[in-house]
């Protein structure tokens, strides 16, 4: 049985190559003979532009969420070490240039939205920063999380850092809800999320958008100044089946 469908779309900012894309996305979903084991976990992370190696950090955070289905501040120190060790290993025996060494000292930063749907009709989300989740029913946004208006994107939120000292002010916000058959969920990094909150009628088009039309659509929105020129990531999920009833819910 297939409970959920999912597609991922991404595009680097205009002027950047694919290997310079600093968002990240991850999905963990395995079909199972037992529908009760079908859980979907996915995440979108957005590495901060001014930081260095922020794409690597975003990838670590997205993978961590999909592997564990949860997120807490206690996990950050070991993830930060994983980031640093990866960069050092990548440089091999070559000494790091002075500016790389200095910039590593500043650490890297990323925003994150993580989403977990269980087969019984429940979902949870965890967020830091301005990556967003939209819950869509009958073509309308019924929940936007964690930001609810396009104006909210102008602030500079505290982001998840590779350096423990920078995470003191970080708040991981969570939300839980329930889903029905045919509901959709969109996860987005900030540029497309801001567009979606500004033009909520666009969710219908986004729900049926063919993969080959994603890049032309984003480029057109950039030309029209309706979408900032930034890395763009979009995970689209649809609930294909009705939620299962829990065994404990069944009457004898």
């Amino acid at each position: 049985m297939t409970m959920f469908s999912h597609q991922t779309f991404w595009l680097p900012k205009r002027g950047s190559r694919d290997d310079e894309y600093e968002d990240a996305h991850a999905i963990s979903y395995a079909h199972s003979l037992s529908p009760a084991n079908e859980h979907l976990r996915c995440a979108v992370a957005d590495g901060a532009t001014e930081a260095s190696f922020s794409g690597v950090w975003a990838e670590i955070l997205a993978q961590h969420y999909t592997q564990t289905g949860a997120f807490n501040v206690e996990a950050l120190p070991s993830l930060g070490e994983q980031w640093l060790n990866g960069i050092i290993a990548r440089s091999g025996d070559q000494p790091l240039p002075w500016y790389v060494e200095e910039k590593l000292g500043y650490g890297s930063f990323a925003a994150l939205i993580g989403f977990h749907a269980d087969p019984f009709g429940g979902w949870t989300a965890a967020a830091v920063g301005d990556c967003c989740l939209f819950h869509i029913r009958l073509g309308r946004i019924i929940k936007a999380f964690p930001l609810e208006s396009a104006d909210a994107f102008n602030s500079r939120p505290a982001l998840l850092s590779t350096h423990p000292a920078h995470n003191a002010g970080v708040e991981i916000v969570t939300h839980a809800g329930s889903w029905l058959k045919h509901d959709r969920f969109f996860l987005m990094s900030d540029a497309l999320a801001q567009f979606t909150l500004m033009y909520p009628e666009a969710v219908k088009k986004l729900a049926s958008l063919k993969p080959e039309l994603f890049a032309p659509m984003v480029e057109r929105l950039r030309d029209e100044k309706r979408c900032r020129n930034d890395d763009v990531t979009f995970i689209r999920i649809q609930m294909l089946a009705a939620p299962l009833e829990r065994q404990s819910d069944l009457q004898p």
């Binding site: 310079e20 001014e50 690597v56 500016y99 910039k103």
Partner: peptide
């Protein structure tokens, strides 16, 4: 100048 270089330093160079 140091700050400018660091601001422009990315994973693939400056």
């Amino acid at each position: 100048l140091q700050n400018l270089v660091i601001k422009c330093a990315k994973s693939d160079g400056v």
